[in-house]
């Protein structure tokens, strides 16, 4: 049974989350501020932490930094701050993901599942070549198999090729023209938005929240990339 710690200064949110999580079968540990979170982590470490950012006494970022010195558990930020700067800062500190408030409980649960799966399963898998891994997405080129958090995903050949192209160089931006030419092997005439549509489908299949993708990102005006 996985243990999840939820840290938030708002008790109502804590209560609601606890209900969600316990009904999903997780054991819940509560903390109301960063200091308490650190202390509880030392007493009985959890397998995943849902951390609010703006808290009194010690905010989520500081707590994350301290916890990260000793533990590698997935930390998900629950934050009302949605500024890009804050997100980058949060991820730099050591969080694995973030969820903005107000959140959809379903989404929260999905992300938790994904991160837990990655965390528990990652250690056991041997490293192999020809396997591209970005986040939860794993692409095996030999068997043309794609899994997200271990779960296999069905992709069309075009979708597969696009994904492989993007995963071959994570962080590299590919324009629609480049993707088209590489995947369709035809000169890009610029008259279709085929690529965009396919990207969208791809996103829906591999992202938890396609509207707010974590990995398959649009770089507006330039193209698309696979975030590391």
């Amino acid at each position: 049974m996985n243990r999840i710690m939820i840290v938030d200064d708002d008790r109502d949110i804590l209560a609601a989350l606890e209900i969600y999580l316990t009904t999903s079968g997780y054991q819940v540990i509560r903390a109301e501020n960063g200091r308490e979170a650190v202390r509880r982590m030392e007493e009985e470490p959890a397998d995943l932490i849902l951390m609010d950012v703006m808290m009194p006494q010690m905010d989520g970022i500081a707590a994350t930094r301290i916890i990260r010195e000793k533990s590698n558990v997935p930390i998900l930020f629950l934050t009302a701050k949605s500024e890009d700067v804050d997100l980058i800062h949060g991820l730099n500190v050591g969080a694995d993901d973030y969820i903005t408030k107000p959140f959809k409980p379903m989404e929260v649960l999905a992300r938790i599942r994904s991160h837990l799966r990655r965390f528990t399963q990652l250690g056991g898998q041997p490293r192999r070549d020809n396997v591209l891994t970005v986040g939860p997405v794993q692409l095996e080129d030999e068997s043309k198999r794609v899994t997200v958090d271990g779960e296999p995903v069905n992709l069309t050949p075009l979708e597969y090729n696009i994904l492989r192209l993007l995963m071959s160089r994570p962080g590299q931006v590919y324009s629609s023209a480049q993707i088209y030419e590489q995947v369709w092997n035809d000169p890009f005439l610029g008259s279709e938005n085929t690529v965009a549509v396919h990207i969208r489908h791809l996103r829906e299949k591999i992202e938890i929240d396609p509207a707010h993708p974590r990995y398959l990102k649009v770089v507006w005006g330039l193209g698309y990339k696979m975030e590391q």
């Binding site: 629609s176 938005n193 965009a196 507006w220 005006g221």
Partner: peptide, 19 residues
Amino acid sequence: LEALDVTELCEQAVGEYDE
């Protein structure tokens, strides 16, 4: 500000709204 291809962006946007 950076140099963006307007056409590309429009297509991306339209692509997002496809459904």
